[in-house]
Design a protein around this nucleic acid. Structure first.
Lengths: 356, 356
DNA sequence: GGTGGATATGTAACCGTTTACACGGCTGTT
DNA sequence: AACAGCCGTGTAAACGGTTACATATCCACC
């Protein structure tokens, strides 16, 4: 593999001149410039990025630490990150599955020298301390953090407001007895959505009832279980808010297996707006989370810190999570909204042009 | 930020000794070893990976070049790659959207010095030539390549056999007039699936009819269009094979919008086994593509070349694409298979433990 | 014709590691 | 007592670039 020295001798100039030509410095004669380009082409010279970043102290790459890669949520976040990064000619180094909170630290450490900054998504409260240590080394941007870390900017989904709004929507449709299937304990998203639910009820002057607050784990099966539990209640509620769509799907299955109809017998709403939400029958009313946008903004917010680490002040962005009214809530708005929030625009806009 | 020199002087040893301790060399006294670790901890020393890989000529990272990041297919491939890479303590550098075929070359070039090998997915025939140039620099593994490149191993989905088998399944159910909605022209996957369709018909002694071979573009809307076209035929077929699930979904919508029932009036099968396939009613009979496995194997096949570039012989793996019988084909096997190929095992097995 | 200021180019230090080689001190052999 | 061998450690040369600084050349000007 040709190095800058090979190019230099082939072009009969010094390595400094080669470097200058390659980096577009103006202080080079036309003659030398041509000889260098010719030599580089002829030798098929590819500069060594690692060596370059060693001297310049800039890598033009950013790291991404995710808890997992499964599911459309993470994949959309990545897509958003990639899109924004590519626009800035930044490379993306990905790493997932940080079971142990200390793993976050190890992953970040192993990226030292390879990245200019880091986007971290770690929903665990326990990962705050390692993140603080990481943030001392390079710029860190937090996505949906369990709590804020000083020196770090963040971008999060407005779980609270989304949940509040969707429960309010149920209230507006006349429901007074609204149950909730909660997410896993300790999960920030789950907690915020639960707070939104409580808040909406309180605002309507309805007292929270713990018998209507059913435990869940964000999985489809836990939603199914919750559905059965719900059916066993003596004063059955008229509506239920599942803390995410997967559980809503399981819940609907459970109801159906017992012969109940959604939304006639029970209105159901979810959270996340996963792809299948619009394909179900009845189509699921839910709260839209724009994971793509989350990734996009993460990069944009990190950008100033990449240019000048330390200088830029921190800022916290919150992404709106709008209610998407479909059929499962039994709302009258349903038909009107359908085309807007339905499947077609989504698929055609970003349809897979390539691949199977 | 502390460097190896800082650690050396803090521990009163030379940088060579520090390096030896850090890399677990046995030729160090117990005394020195302890002092170095103490100093490293105290200074919170993080080795610079780029500098290390400059001397060792090994980066312990691999690059991934994808045409796009949208959709579950790519996200699953990435998940498979990440999983296998992490098991080998390899980092993953991702880059997508290579609209122009020359972009593949540029992307690869910009990774020089940062990666030991590269996984490329470029369905375009035109990207073969740039890939050949890339393969001269570092080990390359191709995923679903349009044609083979010498020196490169590859892993692909058995599109031909999957298509053949699903059409054969329709034939076994008594269908004789089977239409196909084809994928975009020039796409390898689309072509292979078409060949499988033709082959199955031929084996059953049925002559192909071009009027039953409808154009499509792998998008849901193109499937819808194809459905309308199908309905306008005078001798309507009894079954149709859509080259992918998205088109099958659109197709079913079109049929339903004209009052037809699937599978009673027309049997429909797809390809890919996307998540929503099992959630539709009727649940879609399709061909399963294990994108996760594709990524996993890609890394495994690339591995030997990373250890010793050039030495290992190339090999081509083909991943089976099994038929998943559900309801839309009207097969009698449907109820029996349902639990096995349904949604539940998939979701619970790899359910999102974290995140919303 | 000597001076000064551009302009083009080269030399060498540096970025943060690894590692071949050299060296000094100790032990054990003859 | 001299010497071979081993062990622990240090020195210095890479790895492949960038860039501050020095130098050489040319031209214009007084």
């Amino acid at each position: 593999m040709a190095t800058i020295r090979d190019v230099a001798s082939a072009a009969s100039v010094s390595i400094a001149t080669v470097s200058r030509v390659l980096n577009g410095s103006p202080r080079v004669s036309e003659d030398a410039r041509e000889r260098v380009w010719a030599a580089a082409d002829q030798l098929d010279y590819w500069p060594n990025t690692a060596a370059r970043s060693l001297t310049t102290q800039r890598t033009h790459a950013l790291g991404v630490l995710l808890p997992d890669l499964f599911g459309e949520f993470f994949s959309e976040v990545i897509r958003g990150i990639d899109e924004a990064a590519r626009a800035q000619k930044l490379q993306v180094l990905i790493s997932s599955s940080h079971a142990d909170t200390q793993e976050v630290l190890l992953a970040a450490r192993s990226m030292r020298g390879r990245i200019d900054g880091l986007i971290i998504m770690a929903p665990d409260e326990g990962s705050i301390e390692p993140i603080q240590r990481i943030a001392r080394r390079f710029p860190v941007l937090l996505v949906n953090p369990p709590s804020s870390v000083d020196g770090c900017s963040s971008v999060s989904v407005d779980n609270f407001e989304g949940a509040r709004a969707v429960v309010e929507h149920l209230l507006q449709n006349g429901h007074r007895e609204i149950a909730m299937v909660r997410g896993p304990a300790g999960n920030v998203d789950a907690e915020d959505r639960f707070r939104g639910y409580r808040d909406a009820l309180a605002a309507a002057g309805i007292e929270a009832e713990s018998r209507l607050e059913i435990a869940g784990a964000f999985t489809e099966t836990s939603g199914f279980q919750a559905g059965l539990e719900l059916l066993s209640l003596k004063n059955r509620p008229t509506a239920v808010f599942a803390a995410n769509d997967s559980m809503a799907v399981g819940l609907v299955s459970a109801l159906r297996s017992r012969g109940l109809q959604v939304p006639r017998d029970l209105a159901v709403v979810g959270f996340d707006d996963i792809v299948i939400a619009s394909y179900l029958s009845p189509a699921l009313t839910t709260v839209h989370v724009d994971a793509y946008e989350l990734g996009l903004r993460a990069v944009r917010l990190l950008l100033p810190s990449l240019e000048s680490p330390g200088s830029s002040e921190q800022c916290h962005e919150v992404l709106a999570a709008p209610v998407v009214v479909r059929e499962s809530c039994g709302s009258s708005q349903s038909p009107a909204m359908k085309s807007e929030s339905g499947r077609d625009n989504k698929i055609t806009q970003r349809g897979r042009k390539t691949g199977p």
